[in-house]
Design a protein around this nucleic acid. Sequence first.
DNA 1: CAAATTAGTCAAGACAATTGACTTAAAGAA
DNA 2: TTCTTTAAGTCAATTGTCTTGACTAATTTG
Lengths: 399, 399
Amino acid sequence: MNDKRPIRATSGTNHEGTSAHNRRVIIDALRLNGALSRADLARATRLTKQTVSNIMEELEGDGLVTSRESVRHGRGQPSTPYGLVPEGAFAIGLQIDRHITRAIAVDLVGNVLIRKEANLPAGGPTTGTPVVLQLVQDVRMELKQRVAQAEKRLVGLGAAMPGPFGLERDDADNPWMMGPWQRFPLLETLSAGTGLNVTLQNDAAACATAERMVGAAHGLDHAVCLYVGYGIGAGLILGGELYSGARGNAGEIGMALLSSGGRRTVEHNASLASLYEHLGVDPMAPDIYSLIDKRAAADDPDILAWVEKAAVDLRWSVHLIETVFDPQTVILCGGAPAALAVRLMAAMQPLLPSNADRPNRLLPRLQLGMTDPWAVARGAAAEPIGHAFDPRFSAILKS
Amino acid sequence: MNDKRPIRATSGTNHEGTSAHNRRVIIDALRLNGALSRADLARATRLTKQTVSNIMEELEGDGLVTSRESVRHGRGQPSTPYGLVPEGAFAIGLQIDRHITRAIAVDLVGNVLIRKEANLPAGGPTTGTPVVLQLVQDVRMELKQRVAQAEKRLVGLGAAMPGPFGLERDDADNPWMMGPWQRFPLLETLSAGTGLNVTLQNDAAACATAERMVGAAHGLDHAVCLYVGYGIGAGLILGGELYSGARGNAGEIGMALLSSGGRRTVEHNASLASLYEHLGVDPMAPDIYSLIDKRAAADDPDILAWVEKAAVDLRWSVHLIETVFDPQTVILCGGAPAALAVRLMAAMQPLLPSNADRPNRLLPRLQLGMTDPWAVARGAAAEPIGHAFDPRFSAILKS
DNA sequence: CAAATTAGTCAAGACAATTGACTTAAAGAA
DNA sequence: TTCTTTAAGTCAATTGTCTTGACTAATTTG
């Protein structure tokens, strides 16, 4: 009969889509700017005062915003600012790293309420999954105990782990990869194990989300986070949204070959894995973070030697990021201890010339972002909250 | 009194935004799938039959779609497909290249109605602008003569030229740059000179737009066009939209340094400029395109030597693009003559390993796109048409 | 104390999608 | 043939959401 080829089309939208979009726009404005009056919101979103009033009433009813003390500014009736209610929503963030797993609980404005971590046994998902699930369960339990209505305002679980995802070839020999984990249906397992709405992204992307929410990328539409963790990656904020690529592997800059001939990648010289190897320390050591931090702070020559070597590749990475993404700024972030990160930043100067190298820039080419072992988990937790409220294209489409 | 810091927020939307979005979704579906019945459209866009009917009636009244012959498919009333009317809208596309400028007129479905080109005198915008404006004027005049109502359905002028834009440092010595043009307020000049709605993008981006509209990227949401022209660039289709970066310079992969130490870029070995230099031919020669094409087709050893050298860097470029963008496919396109492009493609095999190198891919890692000197102008022309009708986030925001 | 200015509300109206019943047109079954 | 099923498409009423314009409220300025 007729060919039943699938028809490709974007989804249309309707009244509810409009309304959802406007709600999200308002929440996003409040997150970005702090408390705002209805009149301010109306101007900023280009909606009418009345529309904003209606939506605010609804949001207040939903327990997502509350009024603050009214402020006088010159002539006219004083305005009543409304701010987000931290307890309006909660999410759990989960990081699965090479040797450790971390889980946190955050609220609507990004405050971290609970942190827990556990060593991840060797043996991949088989032995690791119970540990991870238990950790999540512990965080959830404690959250439930601490905040009465948290459970029903828990919007989801955001998980992050090193990429790349969906590769079929086995890179078991590559110390920077987590092959068994990457082939494991983590999302489904977590979803089944917790009953929560689960999202999965790579650690660099999660870090970028965290930077956008509360860090150096706050309010920026084009920013790239150069993530230095056990491996190296880039988290991409492009056009105001996190970009993940066709299969969630965008930004895996650590795997970029440094030249057309060689087999060396950025990760070989600049990842924390390479640092541990260089120093001959055991990455499983429980106090490794503070150990590195102390040695870096004391300008340990072994550390400085690694920093010099790593800076060469990181400098090139920044050049590359600037050249291909044209961001407003590049943010160095990740699990590197603060003292180490500061030294890396310094060693990367001067940056290589690039298109981003112009006078009268508003933002520096390279900024130091969060150097917090919990940053990835924070970003992971931000994902479900963002999904629930951010103004994004997909959000206005019909469900 | 109070601090009048600017408030950052996304714009809200209203009924007209909804309606505009749905119109655009429908037009886009028709462009992507060809003629579709109202029922098909309703299913594809997830709008109701009635809504689609209303919009179709409006679009038909606007002269953008017409009904085709009804088709029977099994039981039920036969459907009446509607297709885009080519004469529904027109746009002018303009390419400004190093030594030549091209202008075309296209219709709503992308047919090229008129092509004109002119040599661009040395001396930059001062001597070049009159030539460009005259060329545009010529195309416009001929369009007006050929199609009576074209003038009032002319939605804009899309211009493309090599990037990068907005650099303040002077690279007059760099033969791959067009410094004076890049610092020239082309957009304003064209706008003032023609009275049209003008957009400006780089040539690689324009080429990507063309590939998305009628080429290998048709219907893809994540595709990168590796553009080999006088310089080298990448046109980025990310998340279904063209991505340009913070300042329109995203994808300038030709300027990426090949290693952290050196000063060599992809453009040095793989651009047509490097080919002309390698061959010792004058890039101003009027028949240069067919000349290269013939020599390539005859497997001229000088050409083949260049191909080998260029392929090394292009292979690396593909690896890099796959690693940082994670696209569904990479498309080799640009102003290279067909015979040369085919040889480049062949010489690039085998590709370097990357995350994209997995079995059961749906699309090849690298495809040959348009090898048409007019592709850039076509893509440039698609921009105003797309702007007028595409479903994009910005389109649903309040004007 | 009146005028100006700004925040915010009220009630009616406008716009655009939805709903459900209906009409039309074809294929297949009895 | 005729009845049933299926699918396309229309009609008219309804619903959801934003806009409009007039209004009230609260404050500063002259």
